[in-house]
């Protein structure tokens, strides 16, 4: 049975039409709303490539029932900065060589933003634990950890200015 409902994605109310109510938020973002930045891989919460923010919390979009999210604030990678503009996290990933094939990058950028919102000056262990839900098969994680640490350092040097 096709149904419709609305979701607030990246600050915009979007109608989800002709959808099955059992669809995950990952499926709805990509296939119903055309937001292809959020990646799908394992569809069981293991890889983190579909990480988005729901009411400010980092979650795997594949494990979220989309039809139960009306009224919540959903932020996908497309909503993290205006089109064509990089966040400090995205730039730090580029600078550190933390982007290789790029498939895991949107999820990791979301996870890094979520971490730095909560912990201004994370330790190496905190970075690794907070990124532990995001699988990257290219970088070996060293450059990812370095990129996140660099953002924290820069933000502190700028006195909390998010640059």
């Amino acid at each position: 049975m096709a149904e419709f409902y609305s979701l607030r994605v990246n600050g915009v109310d979007r109608e989800v039409v002709d959808a099955q109510l059992g669809e995950s938020l990952l499926f709805v973002l990509r296939e119903r709303l055309g937001l292809l930045g959020t990646k799908g891989a394992c569809e069981q919460g293991e890889c983190g490539s579909c990480s988005v923010l729901v009411d400010g919390e980092l979650v795997c979009a594949c494990l979220v029932l989309a039809a139960a999210q009306s009224g919540r604030d959903i932020v996908s990678i497309e909503g993290i900065a205006p089109a064509g503009v990089s966040t400090d996290v995205q730039q730090a990933f580029v600078d550190a060589g933390a982007v290789q094939c790029g498939f895991c990058t949107p999820g990791l950028v979301m996870a890094a933003h979520s971490l730095l919102e909560r912990i201004v000056d994370p330790t190496d262990t905190e970075i690794r634990e907070e990124l532990s839900g995001n699988i990257c098969r290219c970088t070996g994680y060293g450059r990812l950890v370095e990129a996140v640490a660099n953002v924290a350092k820069t933000r502190i040097a700028l006195g909390g200015n998010r640059g």
């Binding site: 919460g45 983190g48 919390e57 980092l58 979650v59 795997c60 494990l63 907070e130 532990s132 839900g133």
Partner: peptide
């Protein structure tokens, strides 16, 4: 349990 993403929800 799982990962930060899992533990949040």
């Amino acid at each position: 349990v799982g990962s930060p993403q899992i533990r949040h929800v």
